[in-house]
């Protein structure tokens, strides 16, 4: 780690010191981090779902727009 990119990163690098000085702050930081992990996981779960066909069908149909309707449903 060359340099502190942000306060957050800095804090995590100095985790040990912070823990000794301010156990409460350290605890809050850990909790925020855990919530962050959870939050990203919640989002990623949907991102990783297979995309329903309807979505691709929309773009496929967009191609035919000018021409005669495909007539399929």
């Amino acid at each position: 780690m060359p340099k502190d990119m942000s306060e957050d990163k800095g804090a995590s690098r100095k985790r040990g010191e912070t823990a000794r000085k301010e156990p409460r702050l350290e605890e809050a930081r850990l909790r925020q981090q855990a919530i962050g992990v959870r939050l990203r996981h919640m989002f990623e779960e949907v991102v990783n779902e297979p995309v329903p066909d309807d979505f691709l069908e929309i773009l496929r149909r967009a191609d035919d727009k000018g021409g005669p309707e495909g007539g399929r449903s």
Binding site: E45, V46, V47, N48, E49, V51, P52, F55, I58
Partner: peptide, 29 residues
């Protein structure tokens, strides 16, 4: 096309309902 999964995820967090979210994401698409 590569953004569809992300749009679905964002829609899901906005609506809180999987079906409504996909409708929303399709409209947005």
């Amino acid at each position: 096309v590569t953004l569809i999964p992300h749009l679905r995820a964002f829609a899901r967090t906005l609506t809180g309902d999987a079906t409504a979210a996909d409708d929303l994401a399709q409209d947005a698409l």
